[in-house]
Design a protein around this nucleic acid. Sequence first.
DNA 1: TATTTCAGCAAACAAGTGTTTGCCAATATA
DNA 2: TATATTGGCAAACACTTGTTTGCTGAAATA
Lengths: 216, 216
Amino acid sequence: MTGTLTRAEQKQQTRNNIMAAALKKMSDDKGFSSLGLREVTKEAGIAPASFYRHFANMEELGLALVSEAEEALQAILQDAKALEEKGEDIVESSVQVCMEHFRENGALFRVLAREATGNSPLIRRAIQRCLMTLNHQLAEIIELEMRRRHRKITNPLYMAEAISTLVFNLGIASADLPYAKQKEVEKRLAHHIRIIYWGAEAMANSQHLSRNLMLS
Amino acid sequence: MTGTLTRAEQKQQTRNNIMAAALKKMSDDKGFSSLGLREVTKEAGIAPASFYRHFANMEELGLALVSEAEEALQAILQDAKALEEKGEDIVESSVQVCMEHFRENGALFRVLAREATGNSPLIRRAIQRCLMTLNHQLAEIIELEMRRRHRKITNPLYMAEAISTLVFNLGIASADLPYAKQKEVEKRLAHHIRIIYWGAEAMANSQHLSRNLMLS
DNA sequence: TATTTCAGCAAACAAGTGTTTGCCAATATA
DNA sequence: TATATTGGCAAACACTTGTTTGCTGAAATA
């Protein structure tokens, strides 16, 4: 009838408001665990009690934020995959894309990083699962790329784990640093990844070479 | 005179009790940020008010724990250095030593990992500094080892950063996993590190090689 | 021995917390 | 239009939080 929103849409919107409020509050330095319900509802412009029309408790808010971050991570991966299919240099550009996403909504990823070692076991498990599936997807991309380039490597999943751990931890830790420092981290990350590529390849090839060349 | 402790010793002891109590409370799942003063003092067997005879506030307790963890990290590094000087395979044994330390006092390192992305900026900075000096020390060890083996690599500090990030994050995350899983992580970590060694060496050699090729 | 020092304590304080209740008014449904 | 639904709210509940105050009794000092 009117140009206003339907009831369900309204509800969805204030739900979004709550999540946005939580993120904003976390932007100025604190983690999710030290985030008060009243703080969030105040920022969202609703009464404390109204919170419970949208989430059963604070932990559920945390899980919702995690799954939002999960979607954002998936988006990053899709971008990386697109780059891979275009045949561009995946290392440099992927790191750039990734850091760009981190910058764009840094608070969201900081939730992931913080709560990965945070207080709620439930949330911790959720994040662990999320990162694990991410690793598998990344491994698949790496394998595809390697096949396309007729390279062989030892273990794409291991590579994925190392790369994602580095990008995730170093990247997010630098998200609130000045821009110049961020660019420096970008360079270091690209270097790390390239080293891992070299290493994986060298190790795979060494299995067909004489052992005494590089004895570990 | 008597067999009892002097006053200063007593004070030091209850200070230790407080820190131990905080660690114990954190062992069963929670982070430092969600740790209550009353919780700690109760565990330590003192009144809440007595806490302030030893620390100005909770944040100072956190800093004290960080510096204790720092000492423990230094101990790990000394062990690694000793292994290097003995000429043992540094990768496998270092990872083992490291994980052993993680297991031994896991709660302490979990503080480091959690508060590295935690709520107190003061504590965060302290941890960042700690990890940075650690990287420099590790880089020095790596450089020494490489020189001893007559290998050349690109950048020991980069290697150190990658290795410490991986060991720290993957290692600590697995500290509360079942033993079998821990051993698996140990294997993966050793693999990661070895890959990085291979990669750094391969990259250094390729630079040398391509330069020579261009000359000819 | 007399005096000072000070770790430890109970109690109170001012704010904070998450959550529940009962009600209202606007929307959706019949 | 009448009825049922439900998002939002003020207020209260039952805690828990970090911190301060003034005191006590034992150890250290003179």
